[in-house]
Computed example of a mutant assay.
Amino acid sequence: MKKTKLGEFEELVLLTVAVLQEEAYGVEIKRELEQRLNEKLSVGSIQSALKRMEQKGFLTSEFGEATQKRGGKRKRIYSTTPYAHRVLSEMKEVRAGLWESLPRLASDLKTI
């Protein structure tokens, strides 16, 4: 795996962007993550993670069209890069390998 680090929260945000695709903008990312994690998150924490990942090359962004619903304000829509897909795939493999190395724990968790 490349030396660029991806923290746990960043990984969750990145996966959420990949899931949401064309709807991957700040408020919707926050809404999706809050629902999946069952906890409240700050907009700032999401925006900080998005900015860091864009700087690291995991994401790109562009402004969507202005809408009356948003008072003429445009959404910044995020997209994952091929680099992000590669890193996420590598992380999934590493995690799966670790789970497979813990057969007792893995089987105990399946019964929960």
Results as ranks from 00 to 15, higher is better:
residue 71 G to T: 10
residue 93 E to N: 12
residue 15 L to H: 09
residue 4 T to H: 03
residue 106 A to W: 09
residue 24 A to S: 12
residue 12 L to W: 08
residue 26 G to F: 05
residue 101 S to E: 11
residue 40 K to P: 00
residue 72 G to Q: 05
residue 18 A to C: 04
residue 22 E to P: 05
residue 4 T to W: 00
residue 87 V to Q: 13
residue 103 P to S: 04
residue 33 L to C: 09
residue 22 E to L: 00
residue 84 A to V: 06
residue 108 D to Y: 04
residue 35 Q to H: 13
residue 67 T to P: 15
residue 34 E to T: 13
residue 64 G to I: 04
residue 93 E to L: 11
residue 81 T to N: 07
residue 57 G to N: 13
residue 27 V to W: 06
residue 29 I to Y: 03
residue 31 R to Y: 05
residue 102 L to R: 03
residue 67 T to F: 00
residue 31 R to I: 03
residue 58 F to E: 10
residue 40 K to L: 14
residue 93 E to T: 12
residue 102 L to W: 06
residue 60 T to L: 00
residue 45 S to R: 04
residue 107 S to Y: 15
residue 43 V to H: 15
residue 90 E to N: 15
residue 107 S to E: 15
residue 24 A to P: 14
residue 55 Q to F: 10
residue 7 G to T: 15
residue 18 A to L: 12
residue 79 S to L: 03
residue 98 L to T: 07
residue 67 T to C: 04
residue 70 R to H: 04
residue 16 T to Q: 02
residue 34 E to A: 06
residue 47 Q to N: 14
residue 52 R to N: 10
residue 85 H to N: 12
residue 109 L to T: 08
residue 10 E to G: 14
residue 10 E to K: 06
residue 100 E to M: 08
residue 108 D to C: 02
residue 69 K to R: 14
residue 90 E to V: 11
residue 104 R to H: 08
residue 60 T to M: 01
residue 9 F to Q: 03
residue 81 T to M: 12
residue 85 H to K: 15
residue 21 Q to G: 01
residue 59 L to V: 02
residue 5 K to I: 11
residue 107 S to K: 15
residue 79 S to K: 13
residue 48 S to T: 11
residue 103 P to G: 04
residue 104 R to V: 14
residue 66 A to Q: 08
residue 93 E to I: 08
residue 112 I to W: 01
residue 90 E to I: 09
residue 13 V to N: 01
residue 108 D to G: 07
residue 53 M to C: 10
residue 40 K to D: 14
residue 108 D to S: 07
residue 90 E to P: 13
residue 58 F to P: 05
residue 28 E to F: 02
residue 108 D to F: 03
residue 65 E to L: 05
residue 61 S to R: 00
residue 93 E to R: 02
